[in-house]
Amino acid sequence: MTSPRPRLPALPTAGRLMGRVLLVTGGAGGIGRAIALAAAAEGARVVVADVQRDGAEATVAQITAADGEAAFVPCDVADPAQVRALIGTAVGRFGRLDVLVNNAGIGGDNAPAHDLDLAVWDRVLAVNLRGPFLCAREALPHLMRSGSGVIVNVASTYGLIGAPQAPAYCASKGGLVNLTRQLAVDYGPRGVRVNAVCPGYVDTDMGGRRASLPPEASRAANAQREASAARQPLGRQAYASEIAQAVVFLSSGSSSFMTGSIVTVDGGCTATFNHGGD
């Protein structure tokens, strides 16, 4: 039986990101929106990037309604020209860039490797791995100039383990985990810290996949996720805001001696063997 999710207490605003400019990709909803809101609450000026204009503009509106400062820049992170324009626009708007959060990601189709369409493989790798690389490549000169630049990559527990019928997603997130470590090695001496967060089951609808299903199928898909989450030690899915708090921590001086770290925020699912029973 799934454990009830507790009500989260109001978290105090400590201003840990005051004066910092943070860019989050995939900020139109879900984890990305939660990261943008949490960063703004901590004093950051936030650049929200996404291909979904309406959702991203709604994120910006929530921040500005709370007296924060934010801007939307449309961007497909798999496109080098768009990424270059994104970074240039962010720096042009706010004069600097201190934190890059590579959050944009897609799931792709669920299928074993022998049935997976090559176009699906290519698109998942393009968004989930090529995208963070392109964003990092363009952002790093500005992050080095910051004096305390940070990259936080939003990977996945699927980048740490094998998961059924997810070859492209697992490969992309596994690559992102090790790209995190590699960038930490090269850029730590240059004043840039690079870490990754690996969420487990989070109560979001990545890419709107459940929303695109008929209501009964959507309910069944969510029930399956809840049942899987119930088998992990904390017995529930996460709130997107719980992932966001880990990202804010890694973006701030609170994590000043952390780089190359892969932080699981997964309710304990990678700490235990899932027997599949009650």
Rank of each mutant, 00 (worst) to 15 (best):
V194T: 06
L17Q: 12
C75S: 15
I31D: 09
S251P: 04
K173G: 11
G235M: 12
R96K: 10
G68W: 08
C135H: 13
A111I: 03
R16C: 08
A166F: 00
R93F: 04
G162K: 02
R5T: 13
A166C: 07
L100V: 11
G200C: 02
A14T: 05
G208E: 06
L234G: 13
K173I: 06
L129V: 08
A36D: 06
S156V: 01
A240Q: 00
T272F: 13
S255K: 01
V265S: 08
G149P: 02
T157V: 11
V51W: 06
A38V: 03
A71G: 09
S3T: 15
R45L: 08
A220M: 08
D76K: 02
A66Q: 12
F94I: 11
R145H: 02
I31S: 04
G267D: 07
R53H: 13
L140K: 00
R16P: 04
R219C: 01
D278H: 13
V263C: 04
Y201L: 11
V73H: 06
N178A: 03
L116G: 11
V47N: 12
S251R: 01
D205G: 02
T59N: 07
A39Q: 12
A166T: 15
L116T: 08
P80G: 00
R96L: 00
A61T: 02
L37T: 05
L176Q: 14
